[in-house]
Nucleic acid binder design. Structure first.
Lengths: 338, 338
DNA sequence: CTCCGGTGTCGAACCGGTTCGATGGTGGTG
DNA sequence: CACCACCATCGAACCGGTTCGACACCGGAG
């Protein structure tokens, strides 16, 4: 293992000079600087991360807490993770991925032991137990998902209320007067996934304001139950002309459901989902959807987190809660009703 | 931040005694041991990871290199990651997830800087550039995926050859005499995904040995092209009575393809895939399949890696290449031909 | 009563970086 | 020619753990 001492000796300078030459934190004569750099390169010197973190109290690592909960659609999670990971690397940080079920214990462990400079929480619930631990931690935190209490953390989420409104208004403009909204399972809501309500309530309010009918239902997140549930919904409300889907599993199951019923979109039924474009492409979902922008949200969270870590904004600066505006990606599955 | 010095002072002992009391590496009188433990707890002492790694040359972190390549089915990757992450935690390790495209640079970075004790490589290609770096690294490495040259690393993979044989033999036993095998895109093979060939060649050999016909084809990994390709395959070989699918995207697209053709499995066509049970459940795939066991493979790789890290087996002990035996999960999609 | 061995504790050194204060040498100015 | 300022460099201390060798104290054996 080659240390900065080896580099210094080889270059004929002191350790401190070698350090300054490499970091540029003090002025060093050009010839010395070049020689040190050259030696460092030829010896393949790489600073020891542990030693550096001990000396600087910086690890250049971000903790990423992802929960894989029952009834949550796992493949969607991957896109948030990639958004975080790729942006972190771009900003010079590595990512410590923690998936253990007990998020509070995990958070305490990596925070107290100073393994990380900051923390990103995915899958944040309305009343998330991890938040208390996060607020007590020394490191700043950023969330993807909106909790009830946003004090002390930066928050990023899709604007689910605007999404709900937008979905209803879009179909209303096309002339639809009776809609169905298939949400995540009630289980998800009970666990604190308030985004389900946020979208649903806003959609209901928008429908009421326009005097149109919106039937809402929780649909299972697992196959094949969700297919059955969709069939039942369509049977129950035969006059509905459009289906809103806030449930990835339901969206994935929908093509075969429509097929089985011998109907097609948008001819017989307008369909509007809420998922990412990546998701749509992977599973060939031909439905227009509100873009859930997981990569963008993960990326935003990391950028803000790094700004706090690096002191560009301090603990004095106000914490932000920023919503990504929903945008409809048109895949041609909505049209005026027959 | 509370250090071991604080604990020692509070307990009225020296730093070294406090350290020994907590680690148990030397005999310490019971009362002192208890007092130190108590103080540590009341002060919420947690060792500084950087300092500890500097002193012990151990980080208790495993590096996980995952590549997200074009034409590779991303959701499948998540299951390997979870297998690694969960097992690592179980064994007391955290996971540094690296997704950057340039795997060799990433590997060098985290290895040389001593951020990690060992390395797991996912998505290993026949001739993987990362292997050279890994062999030169100080830390042991474990692979998921079989490269040409396995020297110096422990390797875990599904036995794709046996899988190919097994698929053909299973259908032969049922009486099928003309089969189609839809593989991953040729692109994946060219990049070094030899597992495609391993399965395909073994399947072809088994078919030849039994004197039955096997049509093979590369199918796209993206939607909706893969659906089109499947239609073409079924059109081209109208007498084939069974379809083997070594391509997740194709498997996901198959239900709507069958639906569109008005045929069902296993009545009109026996179908046998190669993917994980988790995958099947998530996407409601009603097809029997060879279990690809991503969680198990990830878990095995980590266990072996930790054994090497902790010196249970040394660099002298032989490196293993271990194959998981393919097992068919029967979901009722294979039957004798009509 | 002395000597010996073992047990429990302590001080100091070390891991590999960064950073502060001090110092020697240089050039420019009065 | 003396003085000052500044630049480049060095030595030492520090971050927070672990671990080695030394040593004090104790009980038991001779």
């Amino acid at each position: 293992m080659v240390t900065i001492g080896d580099v210094a000796r080889e270059a004929g300078v002191s350790r401190s000079t070698a350090s300054y030459a490499l970091s540029g934190k003090r002025s060093i004569s050009e010839p010395v600087r070049l020689r040190v750099a050259e030696v460092a390169k030829s010896l393949q010197y790489t600073p020891n991360a542990g030693a550096r973190s001990l000396a600087t109290s910086q690890t250049k690592v971000i903790g990423l807490l992802a929960q894989f909960l029952e009834d949550e659609f796992a493949p969607a999670m991957l896109q948030y993770i990639l958004g975080v990971s790729n942006t972190a690397r771009e900003l010079g940080y590595d990512v410590l991925l923690v998936t253990e079920p007990d998020g509070t214990a995990a958070l305490r462990r990596i925070s107290d032991s100073r393994m990380i400079d900051g923390i990103v929480l995915l899958n944040v619930a309305e009343d998330d137990a991890r938040l208390e631990v996060l607020r007590a931690a020394q490191q700043p935190g950023a969330l993807v998902g909106l909790p009830k209490d946003t004090r002390g953390v930066d928050v990023f989420d899709l604007d689910f209320e605007e999404a709900g409104r937008e979905m209803v208004e879009h179909l209303h403009r096309l002339g639809h007067r009776e809609l169905i909204l298939a949400s995540q399972p009630e289980h998800v809501v009970e666990r604190g996934g308030a985004y389900v309500w946020r979208l649903q309530n806003a959609a209901a309010a928008a429908a009421a304001a326009r005097g149109i009918t919106l039937h809402t239902a929780f649909a299972p997140a697992s196959q094949p139950e969700v297919g059955t549930a969709l069939h039942e919904l369509l049977d129950t409300y035969p006059d509905a002309t459009a289906l809103l889907v806030n449930n990835e599993a339901a969206a994935a199951a929908l093509p075969s459901v429509l097929n089985a019923r011998g109907i097609s979109s948008p001819r017989d039924l307008s369909v509007l989902g809420r998922y990412s474009d990546e998701f749509a492409r992977t599973f060939s979902l031909p439905f227009s959807s509100i873009e859930s922008a997981p990569d963008r949200l993960g990326s935003m969270a990391v950028r803000q987190l790094v700004r706090r870590i690096e002191g560009e904004i301090g603990p004095g600066d106000p914490f932000v809660t920023r919503f990504v505006a929903p945008e409809i990606v048109d895949r041609g599955s909505t049209a005026p009703p027959r």
